[in-house]
Design a protein around this nucleic acid. Structure first.
Length: 265
DNA sequence: ATGCCATTCTCAGAATGA
């Protein structure tokens, strides 16, 4: 089977690209992030016409995650257990954002996650990011150690190593590369998950994100921040993994490309 | 050409992204 993850930066705007990609890549399971639409506004019908059921979790303007499946759904869960919320500096209330959804699709259980950005090092959003990652770690402990193939897929907003950056010196002092973020990611992997490293279709590094500005994509100034972390039964079933950078081309693309994993399952 | 920031909400500009 084939599973994939893709931050689409608005599923409503990107619907033509998503439908076209489903038609050509034909994943069995596709995790989406940054829906930027409510659960009710998700384009279920258009996706159903291609043979996919969808489970979405969104509130409108920001965030939002979904799972598309050709092989059914069981045990759908919205939000991490004990998922922290974010409290803006000018707000009295902590808001839990739609950043995680899980489901069992055929033989695999997956989380589709959109890890908080962090904004700036030491910003409240940065500490929120670290806390959120710890909640994700806690949520993974049982399934990561289990016999069933299990993976956490999504936009982690962390480059695991400097090799995942087009120019490490360009990111000094920035989020996405700091030691605490990488340690939180390593702790998640420590539950028994390994980074399924995709092969690049061009150049040497399998970037999954390129900024819209300053010709970042044509110059291949990218980052690998969209990850697939699989437990042992998942990782040992992997037959191929790649970043479909073709999807970053064309008119009005997302700034992320899909990460695709083929499995002998 | 892969090409110089996008999206959403509210209605021109802020907020967010990374």
């Amino acid at each position: 089977m084939r599973v994939a993850t893709w931050n689409v930066n608005s599923v409503v705007v990107r619907l033509p690209q998503v439908l076209a990609w489903l038609g050509t890549a034909e994943p069995d399971v596709l995790c989406l992030q940054e829906l930027k639409c409510s659960t009710d506004a998700f384009p279920y019908e258009e996706i159903r016409e291609l043979g996919y059921e969808a489970q979405a979790h969104g509130t409108g303007r920001w965030n939002g995650v979904a799972i598309l499946s050709k092989v059914g759904f069981e045990d759908v869960v919205r939000d991490l257990p004990d998922q922290p919320g974010f409290q803006a500096e000018d707000s009295m209330i902590e808001v839990r954002e739609p950043r995680a959804i899980a489901a069992t699709c055929g033989p695999v259980r997956v989380w589709s996650v959109y890890v908080p950005n962090g904004r700036e090092v030491e910003h409240p959003h940065y500490f929120y990011k670290l806390k959120w990652l710890d909640a994700l770690r806690a949520a993974s402990v049982q399934d990561a150690a289990g016999e069933r193939p299990y993976a956490v897929l999504g936009d982690f907003n962390i480059a695991p190593t400097d090799a995942d950056l087009w120019d490490p010196s360009a990111y000094e002092g920035m989020t996405h590369v700091t030691a605490p973020e990488r340690e939180a990611l390593a702790a998640l992997q420590g539950t028994g998950l390994q980074d399924v490293l995709p092969r690049p279709l061009k150049y040497d590094q399998p970037f999954s994100y390129w900024d819209y500005r300053q010709l970042a994509f044509p110059k291949n100034r990218g980052m690998r921040i969209d990850l697939v972390l699989g437990n042992k039964p998942f990782a040992t079933a992997v037959t191929d993994a790649y970043v479909d950078r073709e999807a970053r081309k064309g008119k009005s693309p997302s700034d992320h490309a899909p990460v695709v994993v083929d499995l002998d399952l």
